[in-house]
Design a protein around this nucleic acid. Sequence first.
DNA 1: CGTCTATTTGAATGTACTCAAAAGCGGTGG
DNA 2: CCACCGCTTTTGAGTACATTCAAATAGACG
Lengths: 196, 196
Amino acid sequence: MNAEKSIILKGIEKHITLSEEEQKHFLSLLAPVKFKKKYPVLQPGEIANEAAFVVEGCLRSYSIDDNGFEHIIQFAPEGWWMTDMYSFISQRPAQLYIEPIVDTEAYLFSRKNQMKLFDDIPKFERYFRIITENSLVAYRQRVVDNLGLNAQQRYEQFCTTYPTLIHILPQQQVASYIGVTPEFLSKMKKGMMRRR
Amino acid sequence: MNAEKSIILKGIEKHITLSEEEQKHFLSLLAPVKFKKKYPVLQPGEIANEAAFVVEGCLRSYSIDDNGFEHIIQFAPEGWWMTDMYSFISQRPAQLYIEPIVDTEAYLFSRKNQMKLFDDIPKFERYFRIITENSLVAYRQRVVDNLGLNAQQRYEQFCTTYPTLIHILPQQQVASYIGVTPEFLSKMKKGMMRRR
DNA sequence: CGTCTATTTGAATGTACTCAAAAGCGGTGG
DNA sequence: CCACCGCTTTTGAGTACATTCAAATAGACG
């Protein structure tokens, strides 16, 4: 058991307690992978057989609309899970792209292994229930913000929610996440400067 | 066990198998309630101690933004669960309003009972994991739609997703859900008529 | 019926987008 | 070390989609 793997166990042990045995068993179901920046981890139409737990780097998921514009749905920095949840749970064709924004190390965990794990060690069902609940709340907040905030407020919200990412990401990707054009985000920031 | 209660068991038995005993035990944790239209089931600041399973009627959850505008986050017709998930799982003050759009019958299920049930009958953890996964996917789709579709497309999306609700709801609530003003929705529909 | 609320309509306005071009920035190779 | 290339960000003018506000009309309910 190497040092990297323990980061995922730390996250799990916040929610459930595992024996040595159980830890080992779980880790044996993970496949370590390294993705180069921009490697197409998942594309619409493919099946998301795995979820990825990010150990180092950062993944993003995004959709492309009728006019060819990208819309970023989620970022997954270290310690976060990423998948196309729709495809992962239904094993139907994915709707999203998943792509590293920098060189990224992750563990892949297959739906098949997950299902088996739930039967073998029911405690894991609890862990995934909890992180799914949390993720649900995050998406709901996003809906609330998209409906109730203007572009300026969504940008401020983003800065407080992802204080780290804001320095790492190209502005276009921030724009894509909050739902404005890169040009407009640029103008907005200029406007914010003036006012202080 | 009355006829009404079986609708909730039917939903559950799509995902897990329960003995007579277990069914009875679960039902004993539910508190039947009747809400008159517009009764304030939950308000921001309160704690969502319970989730509600709708047996008859329909609930809605919504937020109110800085300018006093309502934004509908979710509808829960018969057979759906409704709560302020953020408050329910964290037991912190809610951010949403929950309100019946018509007289509504429901079962209340407390977080406390849920936690205990998970320990007593772990199978239930699976049921709630699954419906949380599904709900997560629905929210994610909403985010994708909000970012990638224009008002017209969001309206069409709504009509195909909630073909039943469209006839029941006042148009303002449809407008509030898809994120436009009632005036604009009205104009949009007129525009759609013309084109055919 | 009459009142209250929901919907429609229109004109003026605003927020954010489009398109085009210029400026900035980082990496790479001569 | 600097020149050049590609990519990101900025800037500006014109435009579009959706909102605002006000008023008229239609519907629902007691």
